[in-house]
Design a protein around this nucleic acid. Structure first.
Lengths: 335, 335
DNA sequence: ATGAAAGCGCTAACAG
DNA sequence: CTGTTAGCGCTTTCAT
């Protein structure tokens, strides 16, 4: 195949084939200063000939890997997919590549996956891990630039990119209140009342305070569901059959909202629903979910931007907040 | 922090702190044969103390990285997400970790992303790349175990996991024919008539041959759409306004089917639709998509199984085919 | 402009 | 049971 006995070519093989030193090959590789055209030519030819590919691991031992890591908790949530689209887009013209690590479910809230990335010497990490402790994240940020997506804490060591969840929750609630609803329930995840500063925590708190402000505190009801459309369906169906009297539900995100809509439809009830995120399917006519849009793509672009700035020498932490926007569709109607 | 001047601890630091040799630490790390309890204890203590984490890159230079790579072309297609779920599940009890590489759009059909994974010394790769050439894949499989997901070629060098696309397309077509439809269109991607042995190619060919068998060859019409729900919506809306007379559409996958349904609804037409994959949203009542189910999770589990077998010494290629199943919902009705 | 050589952090014989 | 040592493939001074 290449006269190397089936083993992949190394920089040394290229050097020998081109009749130059390893250092010369390395320079061509990184197109560093000080290589003549003739040398570059011979080396490039040898590389093609031997089908040479530099090993990132070997390179990693000396310096940059030109790889960013992105940790994600949930691929079925299309909001994260949008963020990913933005991140990839921002990297298109750079020499950086991306690897994604999925958070193991039930593990320490994505921390293991972030560490897996760091162990692989990525040059920076964008992570979604609302439940990780600031300490554990700061330990990581001490060695590797870290952008936390969807966190509202303001560490000195890592940057954050988040939506304004208080403003978003207010948009959702005002819309329902404006429609005349007074019995509004909130459908959210179990973690929402543990991590008060997580997106879901803030949405929940804002829901409660808005209800209280309007003197509706005693009509507030929180429905708790596990992650996923199916779980939300079951939780809502259960609440409905348990005699839920709310005429509207503010769901903590669209997946949950869609599960709720399904339960409501099947129960033959009329309950207005507002979601959060504006995932693609929300606009489907058969669903028509009124929801709070978050600029996921832009947020992904900015996350990578923050990483690149860090690599460029910035040392002060930056905490970026993006504005949400209410998208009115058919799933929320006047009482 | 750890007395190392902010730099991360290495195996040497641990050795010094524990008063033993690097080799000893390495043995504890891999829990290899021949370490006394007292030594293990001291070393473990030093590791915790220094917050030591082995560098995968350094380890990669000698042997395994205990990392599998998964290359995916499209995160908005929930079928791939299901495959991913299966793959992660299969790895749960092993010491392997996973990194995912997204195919750059427009690039050489995912090949770049596969190579990025190989450059990072993963121990095996599962990839979705219907358009990559067998030669390019065999070049990779020569050095790294490779499982191609959704390919129907039978290379000697790489394994494959695929659904039986011919059987699936027959299921879809028989269903529509059984409902009395004779004017059936096929909505597919541009690549379907280039890569005849890709899933979409086979579905297309089977569509055409089934129409021909029934003497309906002159009623066959192929609607071409780019990837994604929106593109399918536009393509279908266009076809409809151009006077499409089909009473049914067999869509090459669910995303396309959902886009088509939307166009049909908005045009106020009655056209039956059958999709392919059975993504989660297909079962939503407002959509109720009749579709061909593929066992994505099991296929993901099997993909990883094949990789593990290879690492275990298997040298013969295996080509696994999974049976599809028709799921009848409301989107396809009798004429 | 080019090359020699040291070393990144780890593993795996091999000796003791 | 424990330590010494020789690399793995690459980058990076530092000479020439």
């Amino acid at each position: 195949m290449n006269g190397l006995g089936g083993r992949a070519a190394t920089i040394n093989d290229v050097a020998v084939a081109a009749g130059v030193s390893r250092a010369a090959v390395s320079k061509v590789l990184r197109d560093a200063y000080g290589v003549s055209d003739s040398m570059r030519e011979r080396v490039t030819a040898a590389m093609t000939e031997l089908n040479y590919r530099p090993r990132v691991a070997a390179r990693a031992m000396r310096g940059r890997t030109f790889t960013f890591g992105i940790e994600l908790p949930d691929f079925s949530n299309q909001f994260f997919t949008r963020m990913l689209t933005g991140a990839l887009q921002a990297l298109e013209e750079t020499r950086y590549q991306v690897v994604i690590a999925p958070a193991e479910r039930g593990s320490r809230y994505g921390l293991r996956a972030i560490e897996a990335l760091v162990d692989r010497q990525v040059d920076g990490v964008v992570a979604v891990a609302p439940r990780a402790t600031p300490e554990s994240l700061e330990r990581i940020a001490a060695h590797t630039p870290l952008v936390m997506f969807g966190r509202h804490d303001t560490s000195d060591d890592y940057d954050t990119v988040a939506g304004d969840d208080v403003a978003g929750a207010v948009l959702a609630m005002e819309h329902l209140l404006g429609l005349g609803h007074t019995d509004i329930a909130h459908l959210t995840l179990p973690e929402a009342d543990v991590d008060l500063s997580s997106p879901h925590g803030l949405r929940r708190t804002t829901y409660l305070s808005t209800m209280a402000e309007r003197g509706l505190a005693d009509r507030a009801v929180i429905i708790t569901s596990d992650e996923g459309q199916d779980a939300a369906y079951r939780a809502t169906a259960q609440a409905l059959s348990d005699g839920l009297r709310s005429t509207a539900i503010f769901a903590a995100h669209d997946e949950l909202a869609i599960g709720a809509l399904r339960a409501i439809t099947e129960a033959g009830r009329t309950v207005s629903v507002v979601g959060y995120d504006d995932v693609p399917i929300a606009s489907y006519p058969g669903i028509g979910l009124t929801t709070v849009h978050q600029p996921g793509v832009e947020m992904g672009v900015r996350s990578i931007g923050l990483l690149l700035e860090r690599l460029d020498g910035r040392t002060e932490a930056v905490h970026e907040v993006f504005d949400p926007e209410l998208i009115v569709r058919s799933s929320a109607k006047a009482v």
